[in-house]
Design a protein around this nucleic acid. Structure first.
Lengths: 127, 127
DNA sequence: AGCAGTGTATTGGTAGACTGATACACTTGG
DNA sequence: CCAAGTGTATCAGTCTACCAATACACTGCT
């Protein structure tokens, strides 16, 4: 199930793991209340250090995606769809702010970004 | 003129320098053919290592913003407005692609990004 | 209490980005 | 030709993110 981890990718292992779990939850492979594989089990399965899995789980917990209970395990969190939407929206805003800062530093205008965004996503943007 | 360099900023010094020059050119403080301060002169003026200025100049040269001639100096490049626009557009696309990848990794949808982009920039986005 | 399962905390090693120091190579003017 | 200006190349130090290794702490079951 978690076979798609690439140690040579520039993407950190813990991010790959967290992303994989997010997708699995979205796909309904996990339901609220389900327990994720234990830190050690998943680490062994992925041939990765337990601490790396811990970091992935911690990120998910920070997002409220998952709840960890010391000594018990890590559980898929029950959250309302609206709250999850709100969380994603917040993160999206953060990402976009970073984009705007990066762009400004390089002398790229908002218009340039709008056009690029439109072509890359297929969406239409206008003032 | 280049007093706005902050060593404690998380933004690398060479990026700050390059950005400052881009702005200066855009503001018309430099005209095509003008020579930039020498690597050593600017380095001393900013209390920074010459190699740091070199990196800034190299980045600008890679963008075609500037041309460096060994033994002579670094010159503002004469480029047509359209070519410069095209270059900015390319960089914008690259930034947006990175944004989309980052977002995908975190389970953030294009819609989330569109909305965030719209609110952050004031632009209107719709399908 | 003890054991086997779970997550947690601390520490160290590795790799890459950033910056500085130094020596090198090219060009121009006298 | 040479001196003084210019950019260039290479190496070393520092810092940070990432990952691994190890020891620790909590929970539930018997």
């Amino acid at each position: 199930m978690f076979s798609s981890i690439d140690p040579r990718s520039p993407v950190p292992l813990y991010e790959q793991i967290a992303a994989r779990i997010r997708v699995a939850v979205a796909a309904g492979e996990f339901l609220p209340g389900d327990t994720l594989p234990s830190v050690r089990a998943l680490a062994q399965s992925l041939r990765v250090n337990p601490a790396t899995v811990v970091q992935a789980y911690r990120d998910l917990a920070t997002d409220g995606f998952v709840e960890t209970r010391h000594g018990q395990g890590t559980f898929i969190q029950e959250v309302s769809g609206s709250k999850r939407d709100q969380e994603r929206s917040l993160q999206a805003t953060e990402l976009v702010r970073r984009l705007l800062q990066d762009a400004a530093r390089r002398g790229i205008t908002v218009d340039d970004l709008s056009r690029a965004f439109a072509t890359e996503t297929g969406a239409q943007v206008h003032e």
